[in-house]
Structures are given as structure tokens and as C-alpha cells.
Computed example of a mutant assay.
Amino acid sequence: MTNHHLTTRGEPRVALVTCTELADLDPDDRLVLTPLAARGVRVEPVVWDDPAVDWAGYDLAVLRSPWDYMSRRDEFVAWAARVPRLVNPADVVRWNTDKRYLDELSAAGVPTVPTGWVVPGEPWQPPADRGEYVIKPAVSAGSQDTGRYDLADPLHRELALAHVHRLGAAGRVTMVQPYLTAVDTAGETALLFLAGPEGLAFSHAIRKGPLLTGPDEGVEGLYKPEEITARTAESAELEVAEKTLAAVPGGSGRLLYARVDLIPGPDGTPVLVELELTEPSLFIGYADGAPDRLADAVLTHLARA
């Protein structure tokens, strides 16, 4: 059995929190191991629901790829509350793992994709405007249980109803959003922010190509493959990102990382589709110096701890 109770005097010990399926970490996350070792940090991948782990034995626990919690969110949130020196913090985890946080950000003035919610047991009819819509659960990741529906197509309307009913029958809240067609051309921009001495600082950006081609037909594995390329962030995107981070409950200064996902809206201006504060891919392999910046962000939080 792995001994999770060992500590080395004078050597900070950091857990990179993952899941059983990625016990050796996602390949992108492994890029930070060498920079952390060069900074004198002992780092270990640790599975979040391993009962043998003594979390108090770590100087810092960094959420990275616990991508199997979606069907056990309550368990995951309760676990996070028990882990000392967890980043991002447990209250952020609770808030950010249910996408109804989008309503709070919209109320705070963040330009956000319009979103409707369907709670289990509530009747729902597809919107009458017959455009394209995205349907997915409020607790989700990696496009799991997510579908794109053209409501001008009678079959798609039936499939959309079935999708909402299926999620509701499983006790899951459904979110319904208009499909932003700009994702098919401009793509989605993810802006990555990492902790520095004065709080979160912009690190790099990437472009994600479109993923959804039609109704949900079930997903095998943890995530779908994505088309990722480096991207230069535009000033309008950075402005929306800064406004989003300013609205995070408790302030963004406590965060080790943040990912702000934006798509051009109907008028071409960027709108928020997701704010990822719990377990986002950070795409550090797509920007020069990003692995070192993530390692420095970990050091920043070790100093605070």
C-alpha cells in the first residue's frame, strides 16, 4: 500500500488531485512535474476518493483531473470540505460545480449566454423560435450528456424532449442554451489565469474547435477529443474575463487558476459560456513558459499555506 503519511523535512509536499482513470495525471498536467521538482517541490498524483490518503500530510492539494465526480457531486463537495489547504478552495468547488452560477454572473453584469433551467419533475417544451439549442446537465464536464438540437426538425424536437426527460428522471437539473453559431467559425476561446504575487494574472489563451454535431447519443470515456490550437487573446475577451473574475464570490485572489471560456455572441462581442474554477484543463502545453508559470503559482500558494 502506498504510504501517504511520509513527509520530507523542509521539502514542500503537493498533491495533484486526479481520478482513478487518470491516476498518472492527464498528459498536459504532467508537464508541470519537472518545473515543480526544479523548485524543490515533492509532487504526487493522488486519487481524490482513495480512502487511504491522509490529506493533512500535504502542504497543498491542487485540484487537477478528478473527472469522475459528476455523478457524485455531493460526495465530491463534501470531500473537498474536509481537505485542508485545497486549491481552489472548497467553497469555490461547491459554487462552481453547478452551472447555475451563470445566473449569478449574469446578474453581476457579465455578458453570459442566455440559459434556461429545468428542474427534475418540471414540465418543459422546446422553445418556439425553432433555432438551434444546446441541452446539457447543470453538473457536467467534457461534453458528457450534451446535445445540439435543431428545433426546426421535428425529430430533433422529440430527441430534445427525451434528453430533458432522461436527465430529469436521473434527478439532474437541465440547462438549455441557444447554440452560438460563431463557434463553428471563430471557435471558443479559453483564457487561462494563474496565481502570482498580486493575484490572478493572465497566462495564455487557446482556441477550441466545435464539438457538438447533433443530439446526445451517449459518451464513452471521460471526454471527447478536442481540436486545440494556441490563440492570442483580444482586448474585448480580456475585458470580459476580468469582469467575470471580479464577480467570483469571495474574490478571485484566493484562486490558483481560472479558465474563462468565451464565444462571440450574435453581435460578435464575446459572451461567457463557462467559468472553470474546479478541474479545468489548463492547456499548459500550448504556450511557452506556461508550465513554469503554473509551478510558480503553486509556489505562491505554498507560501500562503
Score class of each variant (00 low, 15 high):
Ser140Glu: 01
Asn96Val: 09
Pro154Asn: 14
Asp98Glu: 12
Ala90Ile: 14
Arg157His: 09
Phe76Cys: 11
Lys136Trp: 00
Ala80Met: 12
Arg94Glu: 15
Ala90Glu: 15
Asp91Gly: 14
Pro126Val: 06
Trp124Tyr: 05
Glu104Arg: 07
Asp153Arg: 07
Ser71Arg: 10
Arg73Ile: 06
Arg64Ala: 13
Thr146Ser: 02
Ser140His: 00
Gly147Asn: 02
Glu158Ile: 05
Arg73Ser: 07
Trp95Ser: 11
Tyr149Asp: 05
Ser65Arg: 06
Thr97Glu: 07
Arg73Pro: 08
Ala107Asp: 05
Pro84Leu: 14
Ser143Val: 00
His163Tyr: 01
Ala160Gln: 09
Ala61Ile: 02
Leu159Ile: 05
Arg72Leu: 08
Phe76Asn: 10
Arg73Ala: 11
Ala162Gly: 09
Pro111Glu: 14
Val139Cys: 01
Pro111Cys: 07
Leu161Ile: 08
Leu167Trp: 01
Pro114Asn: 10
Asp98Ser: 07
Asp150Met: 04
Pro84Arg: 14
Glu75Arg: 13
Glu122Ser: 12
Gln144Leu: 01
Ile135Lys: 00
Ala108Thr: 04
Thr97Tyr: 06
Ala61Gly: 13
Pro127Thr: 07
Gln144Thr: 00
Ile135Glu: 00
Pro89Ala: 15
Asp68Asn: 13
Met70Trp: 11
Ala90Asn: 15
Gly168Ser: 08
Val118Trp: 05
Phe76Asp: 11
Pro154Gln: 13
Pro114Ser: 06
Thr97Phe: 07
Asp68Pro: 07
His163Gln: 04
Pro120Tyr: 06
